[in-house]
């Protein structure tokens, strides 16, 4: 979907980053990042380690807030609301913007309790609501058929790939609109990875997905748009097809062909 008109209608965008700068102490981690993301798309963030892609991802649900020496300038708007405004409650923001981490990190609780955790902390107590949320989320995460008979089993007894899908289900249960994924398949075997990728394709119908990945092929397979970060700069941001077949920047070209990184 090419942008035809010059006039930008912000309503078209789920998320807008405007001249974002981040420092950790004296280290300038992100430099003047501006980026817009449409709803129901998958955006891949790529680049060598330390390029700032994870920092950028974690800005979107304010997970960097706890890091000592973290400082940010610029604006990030989600649904036209500045998420770094003073009145924003991070707990509410994170309901809207879910996150899946690199290594599967289920709680040492039952499968059921893992999925409904995000609801119980918001004081949802009704058994029927919780049961439904559990079933729907697990179905959406393509895990229901594998675990429906032992929801009371410890989540730690699942395989790595199942644990990661459980973590996705746990995120879906609170009904976010954006899902952030930080290398969600890097700790998994090829079959589990394929399942996660298939799932991302499915989920994009309902959610806006932003994914950090080190795997070029993966970015190529699953994303609509790709952003290439290098040394804290957003070097190039375009449709995935363009980035991989016809990059404008020499650095992008070198990176995707594996000359560095």
């Amino acid at each position: 979907m090419a942008e035809k008109s010059e006039v930008v209608n912000f309503m078209d965008y789920k998320l807008t980053a405007d001249k974002v700068n981040v420092w950790y102490g004296n280290f300038h981690a992100l430099k003047d990042i501006s980026m817009r993301i449409r709803p129901n798309t998958v955006t891949a963030l790529i680049g060598p380690s330390g390029c700032g892609k994870s920092t950028f991802l974690r800005l979107l649900n304010r997970m960097n807030d706890y890091i000592e020496g973290f400082r940010m300038e610029g604006h990030i708007l989600i649904d036209e609301k500045n998420i770094y405004a003073k009145r924003v409650r991070v707990e509410e923001l994170r309901k809207e913007v879910g996150m899946v981490f690199q290594k599967p990190n289920p709680f040492p609780k039952s499968i059921y309790d893992n999925v409904v955790y995000g609801l119980t902390i918001r004081n949802v107590r009704d058994k029927k609501t919780l049961d439904e949320a559990c079933e729907n989320s697990l179905k959406q995460a393509a895990l229901w058929d594998e675990v429906k008979d032992d929801l009371k089993k410890s989540a730690l007894a699942l395989s790595g790939g199942q644990q990661q899908r459980l973590c996705i289900a746990r995120t879906l249960a609170v009904k976010p609109t954006i899902i952030l994924m930080d290398e969600p398949a890097s700790a998994l075997d090829p079959i589990s990875t394929a399942k996660i990728e298939e799932l991302i394709n499915e989920l994009k119908k309902y959610y806006t997905i932003i994914i950090v990945t080190h795997n070029m092929q993966q970015a190529g397979r699953i994303s609509d748009r790709t952003a290439f970060f290098y040394l804290g700069l957003l070097i190039e941001y375009d449709t995935t097809a363009n980035i991989f077949t016809n990059p404008k920047e020499e650095k992008t070209q070198s990176y995707i062909t594996g000359r560095f990184g």
């Binding site: 707990e91 994170r94 879910g98 996150m99 981490f101 289920p106 040492p108 955790y117 902390i121």
Partner: peptide, 11 residues
């Protein structure tokens, strides 16, 4: 990672 998971869900 458990701490992050919990914060990530809005705890």
């Amino acid at each position: 990672s458990l701490r992050e998971a919990s914060y990530g869900l809005g705890s």
